[in-house]
Design a protein around this nucleic acid. Structure first.
Lengths: 156, 156
DNA sequence: CTAAGTTGGACAATGTGGTTGTCCATATAG
DNA sequence: CTATATGGACAACCACATTGTCCAACTTAG
């Protein structure tokens, strides 16, 4: 009843495949001029989206504390990818919005993600990639966000 | 020429699927008594293996600095999962070997990994899982090790 | 055999990114 | 109006990785 492949190969390959994509996107983004961001930022930007967000909200959708989200926003503000503005309808909230530079990054990364997927289609065939996505959707939670990636490695 | 699914969904799902497996294994391991280890340790133990290793070697295979590997070993030693012994043939080297507790952990985690894979087989079908593995093998580097997982998130 | 270079390991300093806790101002419910 | 909840900032702290340095022990050249 056991498996042909050892069970630990699957998660390993999943992670490696993830890395391959992210590294590729990250490298290409660097080539296109966005050198001051780290691999994960592509997702952070996707999470911020073009409509803007707040620190608390971003923290929630990323699965980290609002403080951590705040720090990330601060750093992105320093590098000019986002800007904060007061919310006219709620004096407590500060809306975080992508700058032109941020939008450019988001657009480029989206395009590169698509391009990498096309590479996979060329390599594996469109049906296999579609099947892959479908299978993965079945075993992962519906809500694609919430990477919950924070302190994920390390000892007690 | 573009895709049905947005390109960023694929890496997202890959990562989520990875997390689902790791979280499941981690939770089950905790249920079985190994509460003092973190999610990634399953892989670390696989990398140490039953034959033992050294700090430098472990660092290499995990893709982190030897110091980082050393610290991890130190912490695993403190929690009783590994032990260090002098290498009789080279007085510089200290061989890191799993203790009985470490071997137990490794065996259990291997078993649970298999069990989770079986769950997937039940859910998706054996052929799909095999296809999944095969496809992933094709897009990932041959050497399964080298997670290179260290400081992977964060800002400049 | 010795001198030069390489390798394994330890120690220290540092940086980043996350956490919790606290506090304040503003909104919202009763 | 008062009580509670929420968004955000600030501070202290912690875990984990990094680089740099140093030393002891092995290896190779001469």
């Amino acid at each position: 009843m056991s498996s042909d492949a050892p069970g630990f190969e699957l998660p390993l390959r999943l992670f490696l495949a993830f890395r391959v994509i992210i590294d590729e996107v990250h490298a290409e983004l660097a080539r296109e001029g966005h050198t001051d961001l780290r691999p994960m930022h592509g997702f952070v930007f996707q999470a911020i989206g073009t409509r803007g967000t707040t620190a608390v909200e971003l923290g929630r959708s990323l699965g980290v504390s609002k403080q951590a989200a705040g720090k990330m926003i601060e750093s992105l503000e320093r590098t000019g990818y986002v800007e904060r503005a007061a919310d006219p309808s709620d004096a407590r909230r500060k809306i975080v919005r992508l700058t032109a530079k941020g939008v450019d990054f988001l657009a480029r990364s989206a395009r590169i993600f698509d391009r990498v997927r096309d590479d996979w289609v060329r390599l594996l065939g469109a049906d296999r990639v579609r099947a892959l996505e479908q299978d993965l959707r079945q075993v992962t939670p519906g809500d694609p966000w919430r990477l919950d990636a924070p302190g994920w490695f390390g000892s007690p």
